Amino acid sequence: MASEYSLADVLERLYQNQLALEAAVMELTLWAEQQDASETGENVRGALSTIGENAGHIKQGLARIRGRAS
């Protein structure tokens, strides 16, 4: 049962949550921009850009952790 909660598995789930939140925030951003809240949309897109950049680093880190565990 302990293997169900390995560090790699927990980090993978956090990564999946991050991707889901990114998608949800993007949907809200598109809606806000349709409501003429373009400044808000620009601000959120900046934050989403950071999330996207970090996602690559997280994925690489997970691959390294999984490689060591094998």
Rank of each mutant, 00 (worst) to 15 (best):
A2Y: 08
S3N: 15
E4D: 14
Y5P: 05
Y5I: 07
Y5M: 07
A8I: 09
D9S: 10
D9E: 06
V10W: 07
L11Q: 06
R13A: 06
R13W: 02
R13T: 02
Q16D: 12
N17L: 09
Q18R: 03
Q18M: 01
L19D: 06
L21G: 04
L21C: 05
E22K: 09
E22D: 05
A24D: 11
M26H: 14
M26A: 10
E27F: 08
L28M: 14
T29D: 00
T29Y: 04
L30F: 08
A32R: 05
E33M: 12
Q34L: 05
Q34V: 04
Q35D: 06
S38F: 15
E39T: 07
T40S: 12
T40A: 14
G41I: 01
G41T: 00
N43Y: 12
V44H: 08
G46L: 08
A47T: 02
S49R: 01
T50W: 02
I51S: 11
I51Q: 05
I51E: 08
G52T: 09
G52W: 04
G56L: 11
G56R: 12
H57G: 07
I58L: 14
K59G: 00
Q60V: 13
Q60D: 15
Q60I: 13
G61E: 05
A63S: 13
A63Y: 08
A63R: 11
R64D: 11
R64T: 05
I65L: 09
R66E: 09
G67R: 12
G67H: 05
R68Y: 06
R68G: 06
S70P: 11
